[in-house]
Design a protein around this nucleic acid. Structure first.
Lengths: 124, 124
DNA sequence: CAGTTATATAACTAGAAAGTTATATAACAA
DNA sequence: TTGTTATATAACTTTCTAGTTATATAACTG
């Protein structure tokens, strides 16, 4: 439990990562918590726009938020990043295993060719 | 060279990965080349829709295509996957280094506290 | 050549996304 | 209470996305 939810979660996570503003926000948060205002400052963009981006990041589980007086400090949730890399790595492993198999087959063919060659040349 | 292009490339890659049909296509291609027709078969979706998805994957550098008679076999390009994980890992490393620093600070405070305690207790 | 198969392109629609400004809410300060 | 700061929400616009059907192109077959 549960394939469907897992897929949906990956949808949201990768979609969240597809926006450069959101990646910049994550990179900033990797250095430590920050308030919405602090996250807005570096961008030529309104505060509501950043609030929306944060909502997307939060929905994807990449960010969570606390409360400090009027501020809503945001922090990175690195486990969501882990789930994203896990999918990619699974995909790449499949690919690499395929080559391992191909190598095995090539080795076999190579051996057979050598045996046939020896047979034809007599000994040595 | 070149930050802007690199960012744009990540945009395309993560956006490509955000769609479950496209992830399924990549997972299929991880097991070996396939034609457009073979990729279309498993989905309740028209062939033009799959051609469009392939175009997105190709633009992101995740897939490349050859020619075999009338077929245009698609194959996975795992290096684009590598670039995606690289960004994520960089982000996570930043985060982990932050904790390493925090641990260092905590160790220091701990030591200071111990020294202070010893001072107060006289020897031992 | 005519017909078939594999894929791509065009034109369109419906819905989602990313931004805007204006306004509402929540927490605090005097 | 009144005012201020920090953030969220609403309403709207523009652009992008994912699908559709119909049609075009390209490569092969007889």
């Amino acid at each position: 439990m549960n394939e469907m939810l897992r897929a949906e979660h990956l949808d949201q996570t990768f979609a969240a990562l597809a926006d450069p503003t959101r990646r910049a926000i994550l990179a900033r948060l990797a250095k430590g918590e920050a308030s919405v205002g602090e996250l807005t400052a570096p961008f030529a963009m309104s505060q509501p726009a950043i609030s929306k981006h944060l909502k997307v990041l939060e929905a994807a589980g990449l960010v969570s938020r606390g409360r400090d007086r009027q501020r809503r400090p945001c922090r990175l949730e690195p486990e969501a990043l882990t789930r994203a890399t896990a999918w990619i790595e699974e995909c790449r492993n499949l690919w690499e295993r395929r080559f391992a198999r191909l190598d095995g087959i090539l080795d076999e063919l190579q051996q057979q060719a050598e045996v046939a060659e020896e047979g034809r040349n007599g000994q040595e």
